[in-house]
Amino acid sequence: MNKIIEVKHLKKNYGDKEVLKDINAVIEKGKVITVIGPSGSGKSTFLRCLNLLEKPTSGQVTFEGTELTDLTEEELDQLRQKMGMVFQSFNLFPNMSVIENVKLVPMKVKGMSDQEAGDLAHELLAKVGLDDFADHSPASLSGGQQQRVAIARALAMQPDMMLFDEPTSALDPEMVGEVLKTMQDLAQTGMTMVVVTHEMGFARKVADEVWFMADGYLLEQGSPDQVFDHPQSDRAKDFLAKILEA
């Protein structure tokens, strides 16, 4: 067992509000995890605690053997490059063209030459099927296209794992497929992925493991069949019943 991330007794409070209450989990290299659960259960917060965008109130997050919670800002900047993150709202930089978005980190953080970064960016854009749009502005792309650029931009850091926070929730239904397809392709390359999603079909089909979160707890962890067909907790049973009848 080759673990890439280990989370121990992770807690996160906002003021008096306990959003994460004692989360323990291990993610193995190359695995795809989908995280499901009702709104407000703490899924986003959990994801953001993995790359320390949010500072945990207590507990440990160990990434590739390094304990993250006591690192300095500079060390964290280094480590975040190994964890790509894709957001619900794309967050492409509107002041740059599509290819500049992708080239930014290779050039400004990794110190690649314009040429090298350009080659890498074109390769990645081709992978997500958008090389023709390299010189467009992000605003001129559809939501689905923007999200695929965001994936390419994260991949340009050459990360060891990818975090997705509801990457298709802000999309028109006809564009969901293209983004999920891109993610599925990525999973096939052996990338470690943690995907928070409401797309149950995808969660079941692509995942190696499904995690169910509710009220700040990680209530179920198991294979898709286990969690979807034989949920243990009442919370999960309720949740799945509601989702599946809808």
């Binding site: 800002e73 900047d77 490059q81 964890m83 957001f87 930089f93 980190v105 953080v109």
Partner: peptide, 10 residues
Amino acid sequence: EAARSLGLSQ
């Protein structure tokens, strides 16, 4: 957030 998640310093 997106910039920080990409490893850009503040």
